[in-house]
Every structure is written in structure tokens, then in C-alpha cells.
Design a binder for these strands. Sequence first.
DNA 1: GATGAATGAGTCTTCATTCAT
DNA 2: AATGAATGAAGACTCATTCAT
Lengths: 221, 221, 221, 221
Amino acid sequence: MSRTKEDEATPAPRWRRRKAERPSEMLEAALAVFIEKGFTAARIEDIARAAGVTKGTIYLYFPSKQAMFEAVIRQAMVSRLDEARALFERHEGPVAPLLRRIIEDFGPRLAMTNLAAIARLVIAEAGNFPEIARFYRHEVIARGEDLFGRIYAQGVAGGEFPDLPVDVVTKLVIGPVLITAIWRTTFAPVDERPFDPVAVISTHARVLTAGLRALAEEEKP
Amino acid sequence: MSRTKEDEATPAPRWRRRKAERPSEMLEAALAVFIEKGFTAARIEDIARAAGVTKGTIYLYFPSKQAMFEAVIRQAMVSRLDEARALFERHEGPVAPLLRRIIEDFGPRLAMTNLAAIARLVIAEAGNFPEIARFYRHEVIARGEDLFGRIYAQGVAGGEFPDLPVDVVTKLVIGPVLITAIWRTTFAPVDERPFDPVAVISTHARVLTAGLRALAEEEKP
Amino acid sequence: MSRTKEDEATPAPRWRRRKAERPSEMLEAALAVFIEKGFTAARIEDIARAAGVTKGTIYLYFPSKQAMFEAVIRQAMVSRLDEARALFERHEGPVAPLLRRIIEDFGPRLAMTNLAAIARLVIAEAGNFPEIARFYRHEVIARGEDLFGRIYAQGVAGGEFPDLPVDVVTKLVIGPVLITAIWRTTFAPVDERPFDPVAVISTHARVLTAGLRALAEEEKP
Amino acid sequence: MSRTKEDEATPAPRWRRRKAERPSEMLEAALAVFIEKGFTAARIEDIARAAGVTKGTIYLYFPSKQAMFEAVIRQAMVSRLDEARALFERHEGPVAPLLRRIIEDFGPRLAMTNLAAIARLVIAEAGNFPEIARFYRHEVIARGEDLFGRIYAQGVAGGEFPDLPVDVVTKLVIGPVLITAIWRTTFAPVDERPFDPVAVISTHARVLTAGLRALAEEEKP
DNA sequence: GATGAATGAGTCTTCATTCAT
DNA sequence: AATGAATGAAGACTCATTCAT
């Protein structure tokens, strides 16, 4: 592409105009910094440096550190939610043997990626950010329960699962996954003993499915 | 409560000699403030006020805010550890039906008291306080695993439990309890739907014991 | 000086971009404050105000009060060192009568300017700032001895000066100059009697040169 | 000495009543601490510990840290003044050869003992303690000049010394001694090269006496 | 007389936020 | 749009001084 006439008036800009991408680049950088240091200890300047901009620029896109934090969590979760939805919706057919596969697919995805760190971040800061807690509760967890609830309902209808409240069962599913996530990011770094998250999650899948199946049997007359 | 006559003559003294009691009063006050605000957002002056002393007094007993935080967690956990030990050691006899009782006794004690908030605090701050993480790992969790491990081993020996690694089983036991604790302190306050921690825990106990029993059956020839 | 019309429309801006000049302005202000109050008693805010900036700005240029102090002494001495070098190196030819001129040129320059106050400051704080002492020893004194040593060696070679260790002679040269400097800044302000530093220094020059000449004569066979 | 009847009523006290000695013990301890750290950096508690008492006790004897500092300097100097006086007054007879002995006796006594450190302390803090400066000027220096002045006057009368103002000559005498004292306490600790204070002082004595003698010769017709 | 627990004013230092360029 | 110099409020920590015991 040869330079045309208008180049005379408008010399090549030193930086490429990337207005649209900038904010989400910043959010990614911010996520990394928040994960590493937590909300308070993360300095705006750290985030700016990680994003390759300067402090002032952050404030062109976000009105405050707190607003940025909320946006960070939002974006991080939203971008994962679609993956999660796809994951859940892919599964069709008989659900009982599926539960195990769901846990084994979904578990490591939470426990082994930085979703674990995000979860820890949310847990840590929810007290100071009710807005975050509310968002997480309604946008993330509610959707997850919804997706999982439909699958579970099928299983109950088919006599594969006992008739328990879905929000309770969800917590039984998530609990050991969450503890695995937390363990990996919190205690494993200071622990000399090896820690095998996948083993925990697959054992969890086995025990839980076995337990649900057993209770379902009991319910039958 | 009206002021009595002698108040006129004897205004409140600036201080009263109470060296022995002071430190643990301060730790209690500090725990409350740390739980409410997190480590960084808690101001020493807040803690001092909550303890009924002034800033300077804090520094007579603790060399720094960080040291105080570590002491807070230590004292909070140590005082619970004995309860926990007693709880575990009381149980004797056949262990399979016991597991359920253990979860149902121990679970609410973690999920419903401020142990839940402490756990959240540890999770939130462990990244910035490796010392806390290490302490918690070695003093709190290791002991719990130890106590629980002995019980579980009996069950395995008696064919009541499947032969799984005890550290893995421990996480299956704790996971849903922990999520209950976190839920109560993190999401329940912003959630309009009712949340029944005890239901979660007792369901957990039922499903887990059923699952372990089922797997134990499978193991038998 | 009355405010002009445009003042109405343009109130003083919060700041003006002056990165290049700022640091040395701050160092000058800091020198004045440190001289007046000593290191510990000088408040960063005093220095900032004297420099026409606010506290925070100081920390944009110096990482700590201590670092600033070291920079202050360094800059104050380094800028004088070149003058001193020029002064010494200008002198050529026979050195014996020169010694007197050197003292009479150099003495008042130390005793009458704020070099005197800096010397006092260094003496006062060297105990708490070994780095300052070391810097002063190696950068300031060593250079002075070096310059002076070359001149003195010529005089010894020419039989004008006795063959004494140059570091000892240096102290004989400096001693009365230093006491003059200290006297002026320490005791003269509280003394009702008049004090004539120049008289002390010129008498010193006369007596010292006479003494050295006499000893040089003695050395000759 | 056997215990007598009144012992029954007055059992041996746990501590010996030493009201009279206590203050000067504290002053000695305080001197050491002030010398080591300077006025501001010296903590009352350091002094108390060094004196074997507690903070509160200090305030039974001195109304404030500043008052204590002034008392410290006073006592330290007063106790030395008598020695100095004795030293000066011992000397009698012809004064010219004596000057050298005076310097060689008195010099090391100032330069090598903690008088050097006290001098440094006074120089350092005089700005913040005009009272100290005044005391030192009038009580210490004036007396020294007085004693020395009588000797010098004899020498002038006898044609041994040139007719110079005694306050000027005093500074020529003291200057190299002072620089030796300061050097030893300020720069020698950070200097790898050896430093021989006595050599400086004896050279000083030789050069100064030679110089004064030479000028006295010039004055003669 | 002595103690030492308690106080609180004083200071350094950090960092989110602003705004002239 | 981007920069980065400057701001100033906020908070950890120190230590001279007080005073109940």
C-alpha cells in the first residue's frame, strides 16, 4: 500500500489507534495484578505498567480503582460463563453417568485455571464489595445452578438421582472443587507434600455419584 | 444506667493496670475488626478503639500490625483446636455411622460460628502472609487430618470405608462444609433467597456416607 | 507588586511541569532546612514547603528522607569541589609564599559560606550516617588532600617546607579554619563579643607559614 | 556490726536509699547514650535502661529530656574543668618551651577521651540548644581562654611570643586539636587508613611554637 | 521513691486521583 | 488520546510524658 496524498497532512501516528481494545487489555492486566496482590495491595501503577500504559490512562477508562475492580471481575467471569454454558449444554442423554464426567470436566477447569484465583479474590473482597458479591451471586452462580439444575431434574425424573433441593446438591458438587481450587492457590505453595488436584476431583466424582445413586435406590419403594 | 454519686469526685482514670488481661482482649477486638474489614482495611486505631485502648497501647503488646494479625489467627484457631480435638476424640466404637455424626457436629461448628469468617480471612490473606498459610496448614489442618485420619483408618480396616487416601477424603468431607461457611459469610448477606446451612451439611453427611459405603461394597470381592 | 488583570481569569495552576529543575531546587531547600534544624528535627514537610512543593512531590525524586540527606550533602560538596580544584590548580610557581595565599583564599570560603554549616552538619550526623562520613572522607577530604599534597610536595622538594606527612600537615592547615567555621555557626550567635573570622585565618596563615619555614631551616644541614 | 534492736521495726530495705547519688549516675548513663546517638535519636528509655532505672524515675529527677541534656553537658564539662585548671596552673616559669608541653598534655586529653565526643555533641546540638552553646561559651571556653591567656601574656611580655590577640591564638592552639578529636570520632571509624592522633598533635605543637617564635623574632627591632 | 502501663501528638511514607501539557 | 508531575488525605509507628499503683 503506497502512501497517498493525505499522508502529507497526517503523518503516520506513533501509536496505532486502538481505542476499542484498550479497555479489555487493561482489564486483563488488572486481573493478573489483583489476583497476585488482592484489591488493596494492588497499585494502580502496577496495573498501568502491566497494561503498558500510564496511570492517567487508566482513569480515562475507569472512574476509580473500585469501579475497575468490579469491571475486572465482571469481564473475567462473563468471558468464562460462555465456556461453562457450552460445557454444560454439550451434555445430552442419560444424566446419571454424566454427572461424573461433568465434574471431571468442569472441576479442573475451575481448580486448575485462574478461575480458582478469581474465586479466591471474590471470596476475599466480597465483604468490601457487596456489588461484586451480588453480581457473582446472580450472574455467575445463578446461571450455573440453572444449567446444572436442568440436568439434575432430568436425573430425578428418571429415578437416577434422589429428590434433593438443587441448590443444596449444587453445593455438594462445587464444595470439593472449590476446596481444591483454594488449596492449590493458598496452601500448596507453602506445603512440601505433593498435592494432586485431579485425584481429589475424580475421587469426588466417584464418591458423589455413588452416594447419589445409593440414595436414589433407597427412595424407590 | 445513671451515674452515681462518686462519679463526681472520681472521674474515669486514664488507665487501669490490667496487664494480664489486655493482650487477649485486644486479640478478640482485633479478630472482630479483621473479620469485618480484612487485614489492610482494618486500621490499628479501629482495633484499639474496639479494645478500649489507644493506638500506642497496641504497640506495647504487638510489634506490628502484621504480627498482631498472625497472633489473632493463632489464638483464634488454637482456642478452637482443643474443642475440635475433644469432639473427635469423644467418638469411639464403629466408625461408619459415626462419620455422619461427625460432619453434623463439626460442620455447623465451622460453618455457623466465626470460624467461618476466620477461614475466609485466612483464604483472603494467605497470599500476603505465607506465615499464616504455613501455620494454618501445619497447626490447624494437619491436626484435623490427623484426628480424622485415625478414625477413617479404622473404617477402612473394618471394611466400612473404601481404601482412599485420607488427605483426599478429608477434602471431600470439608469441601461442602467450607462452601457452606463461605456462602453464609459471602453471598447470603446479599441474597434474598433463604439459605439453610444445616440442611446443606446434613445432606452432605447423608450423601457422603452413602457414597463411601457404596464404594466400600464395590471393593469387596 | 500588584496582581495584574489576567490573574482574575487564571488562578495559579496546581502545578507546572518543571521536572528538570525540580530536584536541585529541592536539594537547595533541603540543605537550608537541614542546616537550620539538623537531620532529625527537619520535617519533610518543612523541606517541601521551602521548595514550593508538597510532601508527596519530595518522594517522586527521593526514596526517603535519609536518601535525600545524602543527596543534599553530595550535591553541596560536589558543586564546591570544582571551585576548590580550580582554586588549587590556578596556583603555580614557588609554593612557600603561596601557602599563605591558599589559606587566605580558601579559609574564608569554608568559614564564611554555608560550607561551614555543612561541615557542622556532617560532623553532627556522621555517627548516624556512615555513608555520609565515608562519602565525605573519600570524595571531599581525599581530593583536598590530594590537591594540597601535590603543592606541599613541591615545597618539600624545594627545601621550603619540612618533610612532614601530608595528611598531618593538612590537618594543621584545616584545623584553625574549621574551628573558625564552627565558632561562627555555633558560638558567635550567642556571644556578645565581636568575632573576626578573617583575622583568625590570616593570623593562622602567618603563624603556620612561619612555623613551617623555621622547621625547614632546621632540617637543612 | 551486729544487727541492733531497731532492725525489728525496719527490715533491710530491698534497695539502698541512694537519693544523692542517683542523679549523677543517670547523668553518666545519659552522657554515654547522647554521645552514641545524639540528642534526638537518644530515647529516654535507652538512658533509663543504661542507668538501671525505669523511664518514670528519670522524670523524678529531670523535668524533660531537654533539661536532662543540658544537665548532662554541664556536669560532663564541670567535672573536666577542674582537671583542666589543674593542668594549666601546674605550669610555671618560662612559658615559650612550655606551650609545646601544654599542647602535648592537653591535646590528647581532649582528642583521645570522650571529651572529643562531647565537643562533637555540643557542636551538633548547639543550634537547637542555645543555652548549651552559651554555657559552653562562658563556662568552658572563657575559662580556658582565661587560663591560657595568662600564660600567653607572660610570653609576650618576655618577648617569647608575638603580640597577637589571645582569643585568636587560642583558636590556633585548639584548631588542630579539635580537628583531631573530630577526625577520630567522625572519620576514623569509616577509614581504612591508620590515623595517629598523637602524631598530629605533637607536630602541631612543634610547628606552632616554631611559628610563634619566628614571629616574635620578627617583632624585635 | 519507684514503677511501668497507658497515652496521643507528631512524622514518615504511600498511593488514588487530578490535571496541565 | 495519552502522559506523568503533582497533590494531599490517610495510616503505621515512635516516643516523650503522665500518673495509678
